[in-house]
Nucleic acid binder design. Structure first.
Length: 227
DNA sequence: TATTGATCATAT
DNA sequence: ATATGATCAATA
């Protein structure tokens, strides 16, 4: 990957850059950055996110850090329908099911990832060619006390189950706003986990996701569709 | 058709 | 192999 823009040095600069992208298409951005546009996202699921990383000067790559380390800001592109509502859930982080039982909410990866997020809406209809999809108005967000309390409630239930060795009992049906779903390269992937008796076994890797209803509420009071 | 479970690409 | 970026696609 070629390098993107230099990193922004303040939140204001980051927000200004993001605001300037509203209404632009992924195709226009790709041309400016010298990136090829895939025909669809089946084999390029991270395309929009990686394009925006470069357009905004995020730290590229797969380092376990916020996208903008100096600012402590996480970048999330979010696909939205024609009404501005999320098309998908939002991946937050993977789960270390062996360690999670010893972690409190305040130090959890979920909370740290969501402390400060730049949401960048992108038209997500599969009927739109990838290159024609427009960016919406970005929103720099931190959870309100009520939002954090709600996330904490779900996290404690889910992390509690996993910590007690019941990771195999946790399905995507649990959690009002936060849920646990598989997060793996393929169905044979395995991570070390503990059963209720403390015995180690190979489990399907899982991650925390925000339900679309939760992110819809975040975007609802701020988001404006591109026009 | 909304949601859950499964999967794909790239970088390190 | 595990982190990043997520969306696909089968199911209920």
């Amino acid at each position: 990957m070629a390098s993107g823009r230099p990193a922004p040095t303040s939140e204001a600069e980051l927000v200004a850059r993001a605001a300037a992208l509203a209404g632009r298409t992924l195709g226009e951005l790709a041309v400016e950055l010298g990136v090829a546009v895939p025909p669809d996202l089946r084999r390029a699921k991270g395309f929009a996110g990686q394009l925006l990383e470069r357009a905004l000067g995020a730290t590229a790559g797969s380092r376990a850090e916020p996208d903008f380390p100096a600012l402590g800001v996480e970048l999330k592109t979010i696909p939205v329908d024609e009404r501005g509502r999320p098309c998908e859930s939002t991946f937050v982080c993977t789960i270390d099911s062996v360690a999670i039982g010893a972690v409190e909410w305040e130090r959890s990866l979920v909370r740290r990832k969501l402390l400060r997020v730049l949401w960048v809406p992108v038209e997500g209809s599969r009927a739109l060619a990838v290159g024609a999809r427009r960016l919406g108005a970005a929103l720099l967000w931190s959870p309100s006390p009520a939002e954090e309390a709600a996330l904490r409630f779900d996290w404690e239930e889910l992390a509690g189950l996993i910590g007690r060795g019941d990771v195999e009992q946790v399905t995507g049906h649990l959690g009002r706003h936060l849920q646990v779903r598989p997060k793996a390269a393929h169905g044979r992937a395995r991570r070390r986990a503990l059963d209720p008796d403390g015995m180690s076994f190979a489990a399907l890797p899982r991650g925390f996701y925000l339900r679309a209803s939760f992110t819809a509420a975040i975007l609802a009071s701020h988001y404006v569709l591109p026009r």
